[in-house]
Design a protein around this nucleic acid. Structure first.
Length: 544
RNA sequence: GCGCCCGUAGCUCAGUGGAUAGAGCAUCGGUCUUCGAAACCGGUGGUCGAGGGUUCGAAUCCCUCCAGGCGCACCA
């Protein structure tokens, strides 16, 4: 609309014929400035060598208010403000009801495929709180991208190969032997956590001492594999408690077994990105702008985790042909980003198709005392303990409520209290209230299907409708920024809009017509609020 | 030393280069004869770490400095 007006103004000579800047629409903070505002004239002023106010006035003359826009106004120093027509706003209530649970969805993604890989913690111990942050970030993003018309696959990369796994095998084998009264000490670099003892005991109760009778190498491997398997089952349970589910559990080891690793390293060798030096094999990241090269195969012939990652990303982009891949990592893996981008580049894939989302670490504390997160040391608070303490809804909301870029502190002493103060209950309470109103209407057999939405004219009603309409905008922002924390702020804003409306406008009254119109508004609020909570993976309770 | 993230109200944090910088908690004060007070309404509280620069316009972009977190392995 603005572009058309500008083109027309240029044709008629009212505006200098210069390249037009990008048209942007903002949402003004001040409601007096309308529903949408554009600073287009201000941006045009320089190139067009004209007063922004004059440009704005010309453009406004050309643009005509339509069925959706009631008013277009010029505001100093050169804004154009658009105000939506009330009748259009109220009609949106019917649109929301018609869309139902699909409200807010779009086809922005046009069915292109996205692979989201997250958590991917080593299966050498239970998940800790930091893993929880990644898990919730990933699952919320998956929901939002799906709503925006992308085909999303959620994947957990299982590090079932490599040195950490061997350390786990040795630790578990030692615990197993100790539990069977063999005098042996834990490996110095072993996993000390109490869960290793429980695991060993569990295996003894199920499998007896048969691994003891085997040659050491065989026993180690046998017990280790059972242990990893059990660990993975635990992890899966932990994640399910948080309502995080994966479509694929991808085995690192499979990359070696099926020859993909050999194939990809051969390709890179041929194209000159692999080189032998100091007895090891290196990936020449520096050729692609990285600050240093990285070892792929150690001097002893064993591949590093980086080697698997190269084959893994080949599999993602080339074998499985994902249009886009998003890896979600803790910020302690930050150094790995440029390498991975270089690898993707070397494989002939546009590195822009790989997005690495880093989240800052979660620090745990008990009061003022900081608790270190380490699987190797004994003192560790598991994700499960936290979820059991505060519940999945509060936990998800808490993790989602901060941008991935900001560090967060999880105070265990305040966990319970935090969960009571958690704004998630504010949002859920709004949903429960709505449900109870709708139930009242049902008990009174009020049929509001034909309610006339044009009766929704009070300020509180219109404010609420405007908030309902923002969901698709929020989804779009999240798709563009991969920052799902906006959902939590939107949910609170929406809940506030409803609570405020509820206080000012009695829904079920003697006035049948108004009652029906308001019930429609209440129902549409339920649709949008529960959709918002659903995207966050949070339940919408009818009672609390 | 180099790289990434962060510094916004007493606390925890939002803030897609736009108009008077927001929310929750805390604090102070109002609001229940009627659909859920787990709520609503209002007040107090800010040199947006500091200093430069770009811009009609900067919390936002650039530079320098200060403070915190995390990396910089033939660990993952």
């Amino acid at each position: 609309m603005l572009i058309n007006a500008a083109n027309e103004a240029q044709k008629s000579g009212k505006l200098a014929a210069v390249a037009l800047p990008e048209v942007t629409l903002e949402r003004p903070q001040n409601a007096d400035h309308g529903d949408y505002a554009s600073s287009f004239p201000l941006k045009l002023a320089r190139t067009a060598r004209a007063n922004p106010m004059a440009i704005a006035a010309e453009l406004v003359k050309i643009m005509q208010p339509g069925c959706d826009i009631a008013d277009i106004a010029v505001a100093p120093p050169g804004f154009i403000n658009f105000t939506l027509r009330t009748s259009w706003l109220t009609s949106q209530v019917n649109s929301i009801l018609a869309a139902g649970p699909n409200y807010g969805n779009s086809d922005k993604g046009k069915g292109s495929s996205i692979q989201l890989e997250f958590v991917s913690a080593n299966p050498t111990g239970p998940l800790h709180v930091g893993n929880g942050r990644g898990a919730i970030l990933g699952s919320a993003l998956a929901a939002v991208f799906t709503a925006a018309g992308y085909r999303v696959e959620q994947e957990y990369y299982v590090n079932d190969a490599g040195t950490q796994v061997m350390t786990f095998y040795r630790s578990l084998y030692a615990r197993y032997q100790q539990a069977l009264n063999v005098d042996i000490s834990m490996p110095a670099d072993g996993y000390q956590g109490a869960y290793m003892l429980d695991l060993a005991k569990e295996i003894i109760s199920e499998e007896g001492d048969r691994f003891l009778k085997m040659p050491e190498a065989e026993g180690l491997k046998g017990i280790g594999q059972i242990g990893i398997h059990k660990m993975l089952a635990w992890i899966r349970q932990d994640l399910e408690m948080l309502r995080v589910k994966f479509d694929v559990w991808f085995s690192e080891e499979s990359l070696y077994k099926n020859g993909l690793y050999e194939k990809v390293s051969g390709m890179l060798r041929k194209s000159g990105y692999m080189t032998e030096r100091e007895g090891a094999t290196w990936f020449v990241s520096t050729a692609l702008g990285d600050d240093k090269d990285n070892v792929v195969v150690r001097g002893d012939g064993s591949p590093t985790y980086f080697a698997s990652d190269i084959a893994y990303h080949y599999d993602k982009f080339v074998q499985r042909k994902f249009d886009k891949v998003i890896d979600i990592w803790g910020c302690d893996h930050q150094g790995h980003v440029s390498r991975m981008k270089a690898v993707v580049n070397a494989l002939g894939v546009d590195p822009k198709r790989l997005e690495v989302l880093l989240y800052q670490l979660v620090t745990l504390c008990r009061g003022t005392e900081i608790v270190r997160l380490s699987k190797r040391s004994g003192d560790m608070i598991t994700l499960r303990e936290v979820v059991e303490e505060v519940g999945a809804d509060a936990c998800r909301f808490f993790f989602l409520s901060r941008s991935a870029d900001s560090q967060m502190e999880f105070d265990l002493e305040l966990a319970k209290k935090q969960s009571q103060d958690n704004p998630v209950y504010y949002c859920q309470y709004a949903h429960a209230r709505i449900s109870s109103i709708l139930k009242l209407a049902k008990d009174k057999s009020i049929d509001y299907q034909k309610g006339d939405v044009s009766l929704l004219t009070s300020e509180a009603e219109l404010v609420l409708i405007r908030k309902l309409l923002r969901l698709s905008e929020i989804i779009e922002i999240i798709v563009e920024t991969s920052a799902p924390h906006h959902l939590t702020y939107y949910a609170q804003d929406l809940a506030n809009g409803f609570h405020s409306f509820y206080k000012q406008c009695r829904v079920v009254t003697e006035d049948q017509a108004v009652t029906c119109a308001r019930l429609k508004l209440v129902e549409s609020t339920r649709v949008v609020l529960s959709r918002t909570l659903e995207l966050m993976g949070i339940t919408s309770p009818e009672k609390m």
